[in-house]
């Protein structure tokens, strides 16, 4: 039994092709990821909306701070009074404002809630897609193919959601400031700061989206094909 097995094994080895290649080209994986976002558009949208909201809040707060700093930089005592009246605590010697610790806490909380929402949404989506993942594994997909698809999908959702959220928050903040302070809010503004705030918000959203998908993606990727197939019953 033992010797006949080893002889046979050698025979098989000489037959086997030298490179046992398994690949999922990046172009193809982007295509698949885009397709599954499109097909499950509504679900993707809901996943993304929590991100949009959290990121737009972050962007709103930062851009509003930029506006206040712009107004302060004018060194006009009238504007300073208007700012103080609208709720900013500005000491007489200060020439810039930051966000208050309380506000920062609220932002962090909202971002954490958002991540939990993303994790939940992806876990649900994962169970919905057990069969698809199992099938892919039966066709020869490696764990990292599945991981790659999940990460790509989340990355794209993250970029789109964070982009939309950051712009939305910034526009709303600018509009709000215009109503409150008038034209001077926009003319005194440093647009570079606004751009920086928006980019920062996009980056944060993108990273949060990837962080949120990490655990669900690992769960999905580690799944054995049999288990995945069994869930159909």
């Amino acid at each position: 039994m033992v010797d006949d097995g080893s002889v046979a094994n050698e025979g098989a080895r000489s037959e086997a092709p030298p490179n046992r290649l398994l690949v999922l080209p990046i172009k193809k994986s982007v295509e698949i990821a885009l397709k599954s976002i499109r097909v499950r558009f509504f679900r993707s949208l809901i996943t993304t909306i929590s991100l949009v909201l959290a990121v737009s809040f972050l962007s709103f707060v930062n851009v509003t701070t930029d506006v206040a700093n712009g107004l302060l930089a004018k060194e006009d005592p009238g504007l300073r009074r208007v700012l103080i009246r609208s709720g900013y605590d500005i000491a007489p010697e200060e020439n810039s404002v930051g966000s208050s610790p309380k506000l920062r806490w609220i932002i962090i909380l909202s971002l954490m809630v958002c991540v939990v929402g993303i994790v939940n949404a992806h876990l649900m989506a994962g169970t919905e897609r057990f069969r698809e993942i199992g099938t892919m594994k039966c066709l020869g997909a490696l764990d990292r193919f599945i991981l790659k698809l999940f990460l790509l999908e989340a990355g794209m959702q993250g970029l789109a959601g964070a982009g939309a959220g950051a712009l939305l928050g910034a526009l709303f903040s600018l509009f709000n400031s215009f109503i409150r302070f008038g034209n001077v809010a926009l003319t005194a503004l440093s647009w570079a700061d606004v751009g920086q705030s928006v980019l920062f918000a996009i980056l944060v959203g993108f990273i949060l989206s990837l962080v949120g998908v990490m655990y669900p993606a690992i769960v999905a990727a580690r799944m054995q094909p049999v288990e995945a197939m069994r869930t159909e019953e």
């Binding site: 046992r20 398994l22 594994k137 039966c138 066709l139 020869g140 997909a141 490696l142 764990d143």
Partner: peptide, 14 residues
């Protein structure tokens, strides 16, 4: 795992 996946991909059709 890699070789199994390869087997599923090239040797077996399901």
């Amino acid at each position: 795992a890699y070789e199994l996946a390869w087997l599923r991909c090239r040797k077996i059709g399901y």
